[in-house]
Design a binder for these strands. Structure first.
Length: 245
RNA sequence: CCCAGCCAGGUG
């Protein structure tokens, strides 16, 4: 079944859901039993395809067959709800999983926090962050990247910057996503000084933006007619030994 | 440590 799970996952990732379904029949013919990994894989695929209802049906189906949803299954469903802007529904699932005796992990919380950040509900996002600490799940850089993203989206740059300092002081390494998040946001809001400030900070830490990041920056500058800024980014990219694609 | 789940971004 492990081998089949890999195949199912491969088909799902290629959006070949129909072929994945056919593979399920083949599995049944061989008298192998779908397990929670198979179901979680399928649930993720249908959520990504925008069919959360079918995903929920699959969840009921597995329960009916005595295959219990685990932390990954629930987290996957939560991600599905968050994707369509229903973070509150995702939060309801947290209650349900606890009722069923399944413990959330750091990915579960990161998923929920990201969902609320997307909706601009930073109060709830930070509340969940506090809650995860209380139950001894350590927030990771992914957690903080989501929070920083949420703050930037609503223009709370000062708070975002303070959070970055706080994260560094906790000994958590900032990564490329952290910088990309805050740099892109400042760029969108036209805060050029901050764009350069964080590009410098990034360089100091030895983290190089990718050609993708540079292109995003140049594109935005070009769109608002800041051609000289775009040119500056271009030069900076070449100086850092990054080749245009 | 094994098959599934979490963060940002471009050439509309």
């Amino acid at each position: 079944i492990v081998t089949y799970n890999s195949l199912v996952n491969g088909l799902c990732k290629l959006n070949k859901l129909q072929e994945a379904k056919e593979l399920l029949d083949e599995i049944s013919c061989k008298h192998l039993v779908l397990n929670e990994v198979t179901y979680s894989t399928l649930i993720d695929a249908y959520c990504n395809a925008g069919d959360i209802n079918y995903a929920l049906n699959l969840c009921d189906e597995m329960i009916g067959k005595g295959v219990l949803p685990n932390v990954v299954t629930y987290t996957t469903l939560m991600k599905g709800f968050c994707r369509i802007g229903k973070a509150q529904k995702a939060l309801d699932l947290l209650v349900e999983m606890l009722k069923r005796g399944v413990d959330p992990d750091h990915v579960t919380y990161n998923t929920l926090i990201h969902g609320f950040c997307q909706q601009g509900n930073m109060e709830m996002a930070f509340e969940l962050h506090d809650e995860m600490s209380q139950i001894h799940l350590k927030p990771t850089i992914v957690t903080y990247n989501s929070l920083i993203y949420g703050l930037c989206r609503i223009g709370r740059f000062k708070h975002a910057k303070e959070l970055i300092v706080y994260v560094s002081q906790k000994g958590i390494e900032l990564n490329e996503t952290t910088y990309d998040t805050i740099i892109s946001a400042h760029c969108n809001w036209g805060n050029l000084d901050e764009v350069h400030y964080f590009l410098d900070e990034m360089a100091k830490k030895g983290i190089l933006p990718t050609v993708y990041t540079y292109t995003a920056l140049m594109s935005k500058f070009c769109k608002v007619g800041q051609l000289e800024e775009a040119k500056e980014i271009w030069n900076e990219m070449l100086e850092n030994g990054i080749s245009p694609d």
